[in-house]
Amino acid sequence: MYDAPASEQKVNQQTTKISARKVQVYYGDTHAIKDVDVDIEDRTVTAFIGPSGCGKSTFLRCLNRMNDTIDVARIEGDILLDGEDIYDKKVDPVQLRAKVGMVFQKPNPFPKSIYDNIAYGPRIHGLAKNKADLDEIVEKSLRRGAIWNEVKDRLHAPGTGLSGGQQQRLCIARAIATEPEVLLMDEPCSALDPIATGQVEELIDELRESYSVVIVTHSMQQAARVSQKTAFFHLGNLVEYGETGQIFTNPVDPRTESYITGRIG
């Protein structure tokens, strides 16, 4: 179990982006997340792994308050972003989500043109001064989302007309177009072929220069390739959290070991 000593926490103060303490999530009577403590560092890729239904998506959604949209969901504990409690009454979830972007497990492009899908965020946050500015943001985001070459000739075709993998990359591009500080990605590569997966992983690596990225994945290889920190969830508990290399080569908890070896074989 990851338990940072007090002295180490002080050292990490500048680099800790999100810090969660004693987080509980309930869906009605279901206790989906139990007592989770986690520090997510700035300019780092953190991977969440664990069997299906263990609460990875649920915890991810706590980090930008997307669980607010689910009536039955109830959250306890503290989650601090840059030292500020994001569940504080003063915090506007809308502003929070502009800072903490999200790519969903299932691709969900808007029924608008590819261009408008990307321009959506910049428009509502007023990030572009003029049309040329916006065009530039759109192009840059699509390039970073590794989809520019495929759509540059049909920017005004509907985004829903793309293939599943293309839609997912469109959603990634849409999320980074708003320039978030933290990007939460829920299985972003589950619908992608190896080439696109490689491109997205490259993007994640690139994003690490300036942002903090949290990625949920079922692929151990992917977690090992892209992340510096890994958290293993099991039945709503955070079983183990630490350096990716250490988790994969020398896990402390037997559950982690059996999960990793079971998957990798």
Binding site: N64, T69, V94, K99, N108, Y120, I124, R174
Partner: peptide, 25 residues
């Protein structure tokens, strides 16, 4: 609902989401 989530996830407000995503859809 995924359509609304997508919009909220980008930091849109409720009325922006309704006006720009739900109603056009």
């Amino acid at each position: 609902q995924a359509m609304r989530d997508g919009s909220y996830g980008l930091g849109a407000t409720k009325s922006e989401t309704i006006k720009q995503v739900v109603l056009p859809a």
